[in-house]
Amino acid sequence: NRTSFTQEQIEALEKEFERTHYPDVFARERLAAKIDLPEARIQVWFSNRRAKWRR
């Protein structure tokens, strides 16, 4: 089942994506704690966001 992201979560994710397309585990963990999502969801979001960026 899909995770629905809040506007705040999307903004935080997009901001980090501007900084780096490949956040390391520490950056992902920090973001996970900040926006209250599992680190695995963040990893998947970045993977999908990079795919979207390449299109």
Rank of each mutant, 00 (worst) to 15 (best):
R55F: 15
F46M: 08
S47I: 06
P23V: 05
W53V: 14
R49E: 10
A33K: 15
S47Q: 14
L13G: 00
T20I: 06
K34L: 08
T3L: 11
E39T: 06
E39N: 05
I42V: 09
A40P: 09
F26Y: 11
R55H: 06
A51I: 06
K34V: 14
Q7V: 11
Q43G: 09
E29P: 01
E39W: 04
D24V: 01
D36F: 03
T20R: 04
N48T: 14
S47P: 01
Q9P: 00
K15M: 09
L13F: 03
A12I: 04
K15D: 11
Y22P: 00
F17I: 01
D24E: 04
H21M: 14
K15A: 14
R30W: 07
R54S: 12
W53F: 09
E11H: 10
K15V: 08
P23L: 07
I35C: 10
T20P: 00
V25G: 14
Q7T: 14
L31T: 02
D24I: 00
L31I: 07
V44D: 14
F46N: 00
V25S: 14
E29T: 13
R49M: 07
E29H: 07
R50D: 02
E8V: 08
S47F: 04
A32T: 03
A12N: 06
A12T: 14
D36A: 10
A27Q: 14
E8W: 05
F26R: 14
E8F: 15
A32W: 01
T3R: 09
R49Q: 14
S47D: 11
A33D: 02
I10H: 06
E8Y: 03
R41D: 14
Q43A: 13
F17R: 01
A51P: 02
E29Q: 13
V44G: 09
R50I: 06
R54E: 07
N1Y: 14
R49F: 02
I10C: 09
A12M: 08
I35S: 03
F26N: 15
R19H: 07
E8N: 03
T3S: 15
E29R: 15
R28C: 14
Y22K: 07
S4Q: 12
P23C: 03
H21Y: 04
E16V: 09
E14T: 02
F17W: 14
R54L: 12
R2W: 11
R49W: 02
P38F: 02
E18A: 11
I35F: 11
N48M: 14
F46Q: 00
T6P: 03
T6C: 04
Y22C: 09
E39C: 05
F5S: 03
A12W: 06
E11I: 11
E8Q: 15
R41W: 11
I10A: 11
E14A: 03
A27H: 12
L13R: 00
N48A: 13
P38Y: 02
R55L: 07
W53G: 07
L37T: 09
R2F: 14
P23E: 01
A40I: 10
N1R: 04
A33W: 09
R41K: 11
L13K: 01
R30I: 11
I42M: 05
L13T: 00
V25D: 09
L31W: 02
E11L: 12
E8D: 14
Q9H: 05
R41V: 14
W45I: 00
F5E: 08
Q7I: 09
A40T: 12
